[in-house]
Measured scan of single mutants.
Amino acid sequence: SEEEEEEWRRAKERGEEIIILGILWKPNDEEAERRIKEALRRV
């Protein structure tokens, strides 16, 4: 969703871990980033 995407962007800017759509994303975690982008597209 729009607000999840916004939340994720803010976490990326701050360089902090975030759990979004049930996926743990850490800074520079390209695999998780790809999965999150896929999940955001499906929503």
Results as ranks from 00 to 15, higher is better:
Lys12Tyr: 12
Ile23His: 04
Ile20Trp: 01
Ile19Pro: 04
Glu16Gln: 11
Lys37His: 09
Ala32Tyr: 03
Glu30Pro: 12
Glu31Trp: 03
Asn28Phe: 13
Arg10Tyr: 06
Lys37Gly: 03
Lys26His: 08
Arg42Pro: 07
Glu13Thr: 08
Ile18Asn: 01
Ile23Gly: 02
Arg41Tyr: 05
Gly15Leu: 06
Gly15Lys: 07
Lys37Thr: 13
Gly15Asp: 04
Glu5Val: 04
Arg9Gln: 14
Glu4Arg: 10
Lys37Tyr: 05
Ala39Pro: 00
Glu6Trp: 08
Arg35Glu: 11
Ala32Asp: 03
Val43Leu: 15
Ser1Lys: 12
Glu16Leu: 14
Glu33Pro: 00
Glu4Ser: 13
Glu17Ser: 12
Ile20Leu: 04
Glu4Tyr: 15
Arg14Ala: 13
Glu2Tyr: 15
Ile18Tyr: 09
Arg9Gly: 07
Glu38Thr: 01
Glu3Trp: 15
Glu30Cys: 10
Pro27Thr: 01
Lys12Cys: 11
Pro27Gln: 00
Lys12Ala: 08
Glu4Ile: 15
Asp29Trp: 05
Ser1Leu: 15
Ile18Arg: 03
Glu2Asn: 14
Trp25Asp: 02
Trp8Val: 09
Lys12Asp: 04
Glu2Ala: 12
Glu13His: 06
Trp25Arg: 00
Arg41Val: 12
Gly15His: 05
Trp8Ala: 06
Glu30Gly: 10
Glu13Tyr: 03
Glu7Cys: 15
Glu13Gln: 11
Ile23Phe: 01
Leu40Ser: 02
Glu17Thr: 12
Val43Phe: 12
Lys12Phe: 09
Glu33Phe: 02
Glu5Lys: 02
Gly22Asp: 06
Glu30Met: 14
Glu13Asn: 06
Glu3Ala: 13
Leu24Phe: 05
Leu21Ile: 06
Ile36Pro: 00
Gly22Thr: 03
Ile18His: 04
Ile20His: 02
Glu7Lys: 15
Pro27Asp: 06
Ala11Asn: 03
Ala11Met: 08
Leu21Gln: 10
Ala11Gln: 03
Glu17Gln: 10
Arg42Cys: 11
Glu5Arg: 01
Ile19Asp: 02
Glu31Val: 10
Glu31Ile: 08
Leu24Asn: 06
Ile20Ala: 00
Ala39Val: 07
Arg14Gln: 10
Trp25Ile: 04
Glu6Phe: 07
Arg35Lys: 14
Arg41Met: 09
Asp29Ile: 01
Glu30Asn: 08
Pro27Ala: 00
Glu33Val: 04
Gly22Phe: 10
Arg41Lys: 12
Ala39Ile: 09
Lys37Ile: 13
Ser1Pro: 13
Ile19Tyr: 13
